[in-house]
Each structure stands twice: as C-alpha cells, then as structure tokens.
Design a protein around this nucleic acid. Structure first.
Lengths: 228, 228
DNA sequence: ACCTGAACACCGTTCAAGT
DNA sequence: ACCTGAACACCGTTCAAGT
C-alpha cells in the first residue's frame, strides 16, 4: 500500500502543458515563467523539471497542443474544401493562442500533432488534388506563408483598426506637422477605413481564396492531371 | 571653448541604434541586452537611458532602420515591377536582420521610414495600379502577409533543408518505429527533396508571382479600370 | 544639472542538501 | 532514490548618491 498522494493533484507532463497553455492564453506569453507556472499548479518551480527538460521543451509541448486543435477533414474529399477548412481552422486556432504565432514551424522536435498536420496536408495535395511533388511543395509553402503571415499582422494590429488608424495618424501629425503632405495616403487610410466600416477579420478569406483560386488554375495547367 | 570629449565616441541615439542592430545581427536578438549593448559601446548601461526611453523604444528605432533599408522604386512606373522589387527587397532585408521578423508591423510608434514604406505602397497601388481603395487594402494585406509569413518560415527552417528533412525524419522514426507507416508523406518529403535538390530561396518568388498574377487579374476585372 | 553605481525585483537553471 | 530550497548568473529599470 502506497502512501496517499496530495488529493487530485498528481503532477504530469500533460497537466503541466495544459496549465502552461492556459497561463499563456490568459496573461500573454511573457507572463509564463517556470515560477508563475509552478505557483499556478501549486508546486515548487523545480518540481516541473521532473516532467519537462527545460522551458524550451515545455514550449515544444505547448505548440503541439496548438497543432492538435486544428481541424482537418479526412482524406478523399474535395481538395479545395479541405485546404480551405484547414486554413480557416488554423487561423481561428492562432487567434485563440496568439503566443504561438511565429513559432509553429520553428520547433526542432515536432510532436505527433505537428507531424500529422504536415503529413495530412501533403496527402491532400498529392492525392486529393493530384499535384506533382514539386507543385505540392509550392502550394504548401504559399498557403502556410500566407496563413502565418496574416495571423502575425492581425495580431500586431489593434482590434478597432479604423479608430486606431485615426489615433495613430493624429499622433504622427502632432509629432510632424508636415506629415499630412508627406504621407497623403496614410491620411487617406485613416479617413477611408472609417467610411467603409473596415473589419480585418474578413480580409483573411479574401487572400486565402485569391491564393486557392490561383493554385486551382495552376493545377489545371499541370501536364499530368491525374495522380503521380 | 568646450571641454574636449572622449575622442570619437560621443554617444547619440543614432549610434546606439546602429550598434544595437549590429549586435542583434551578429549574436541574435537574445544576445542584445542593455548591458551587452553598453559594453559594446564602452559605456555604462544606465548611460543609454539618456538617449532611449527603454528597451522597447530602442527596438522601435531598430525596426525603423530595417524599414529604411527596403528599396522602393519611385512612383509612376509599372505597378507590378514596383511591388515585385519592393517584396524582393523586403525579403532580402529580413534575411539580413532575422531578429526583425514578426515585429515589422507590431510597433506602436512607427518611425519615418515605416510611414514612408506604407505610404508609398498605398500610392503605388492606388495611382500606378489604379486599384480602388478597398482593392488596394486587399492587395496590400495579401502581399505583406505572404512576405512576412514566408520570411518567418524560411527563418525557422534549417539552411540545408533536404539534409535536415532526412535527419528529422530519422529522429522521428527512431522515436516511433511506426512513424513510416503513420506519416508516409513526411517520409516522401525526406526522400524527394534530395532528389530535386531543393532550394527554399527560389520558393519565395514562386508564391510572390502567383499572388501578383492573381492581383493583376483582379485589377482587370475591376469596374473602373482607370483611377479613383 | 547631469550622469551613473548600487540596488530591486525578476528570470531559467544548477547544484547540493535534504528526505 | 527522488525531490526541492538555496544559490548563481543573468535580466530591465528605479533610485539615490555622486559630480
């Protein structure tokens, strides 16, 4: 018979990773430290090191949780619909976990969800779309560059873009009275965005569909239209 | 007559910013601290605070130096050629300053080079290309999302991609013997990239031209083909 | 007044002392 | 043997003491 443990709180790698994601989601990535995470879990900082090698290993695990949240239709369907849903789901996932933006592809040790995501994307492009290998790599690269880059810009921008554009423009003009003449198109942005009641969230699908359409046209031009 | 200063070393905001860029370029962003920067300049850490408000203000200045290095043809030329050169120059600039990736659009206080870059881009899209205001915003968004996202992925990836793909795949298989069956398309990547002697740097222009072509087609379809 | 060393409140992680 | 508190080598920045 083993000595009773502290009720309902056995530390595990999984529990640590999920707590770390929760801390980063709510307080931002800078608020996540080994010390703050330990205190959130009711343990000493050094106790975490029994389950994660270091902070980088902790981050690897967090990123794989993010990958695991991306929806991916099963293979065999319409490739455009599959890629479109995958992109929109990744975009939404990154909105939930902005601290992951810029780090999805930079992990040296990819977790199982990461591997599955990349494997299934290539499977869709090769089998469902019928792209040649080089064309599939091209398509993968342009889609994901756009998805990650958009998330990065969206995250950098303030939530109310028209209002903020005006505020920023006012600040620029205040600092430099000649700004209105020097940067007329920035002044225009501040004015026009309010007029058209601009919502950046709609912008994502515009660029996505522009790219998907272009890829579909490229596919039609590929010599072998079937598999291989 | 003023007392002679320490020869050839009057501290200034500009000198501090340039030294900071040099430190980040050579040692990575993590190697840049107020202490390391001060020692590089032969001063005490606190002396820097006379010229920069804090580390964030220092970073603002560094980012504007990066913007200032992006080539931009003067207005009035072919819009596709202008946007293409701008994109390629931004890509090269980010390769020289990888620490700036992911931070170009997130600065609250934009510097003059930043303002000029955005103003000139809108000027080209509105005047040279003749896009409507909403279409110009769409085009701006999709181009820069791609440029920044590509740089991010390229920076995350190792320099010799085919070799690294093999190494990584071997590591995955070692950790999980069933990996080859579970992720057949990742195995394919490891094999095929070597065959076609893959060079990721060529990938940038593929996606860029795909997007520029699509924007040119969109422009042809716009109701008013002239200005306004 | 201007400048800057010491100090403060943090980090991630090592290491040795506890059980 | 497993676990973890104290300590180390860093941070950015405040503040008060120097000139």
């Amino acid at each position: 018979m083993v000595r009773a443990r502290k009720a309902a709180a056995p530390l595990s790698r999984d529990r640590i990773l999920r707590a770390a994601v929760a801390v980063a989601d709510s307080g931002g990535f800078d608020s996540l430290s080994m010390r703050s995470l330990a205190s959130e879990l009711g343990t000493a900082p050094m106790s975490l090191y029994r389950h994660v090698a270091n902070k980088d290993d902790l981050f690897d695990g967090m990123i794989d949780i993010v990958f695991s949240e991306v929806e991916f239709p099963s293979q065999g369907g319409n490739w455009l619909a599959t890629m479109r849903l995958r992109a929109i789901s990744m975009h939404e996932t990154l909105q939930r976990h902005p601290w992951a933006i810029g780090h999805m592809e930079s992990r040296r040790r990819a977790g199982p969800a990461n591997l599955r995501y990349h494997n299934d994307t290539m499977a869709c492009l090769r089998e469902d779309a019928g792209f040649s290998f080089p064309a599939a790599v091209h398509a993968f690269s342009v889609m994901d560059s756009y998805i990650y880059g958009f998330a990065q810009q969206e995250n950098a921008l303030p939530s109310d873009i028209p209002a903020e554009a005006e505020v920023r423009h006012d600040a620029v003009v205040e600092a430099d009275p000649d700004a209105a003449e020097r940067y007329p198109y920035l002044a225009q942005i501040a004015v026009e965005l309010r007029k058209i009641d601009y919502d950046f969230s709609q912008e994502f699908e515009f660029g996505l569909d522009l790219i998907l359409d272009a890829l579909e046209r490229m596919r039609d031009r590929e010599p072998a239209s079937g598999k291989k």
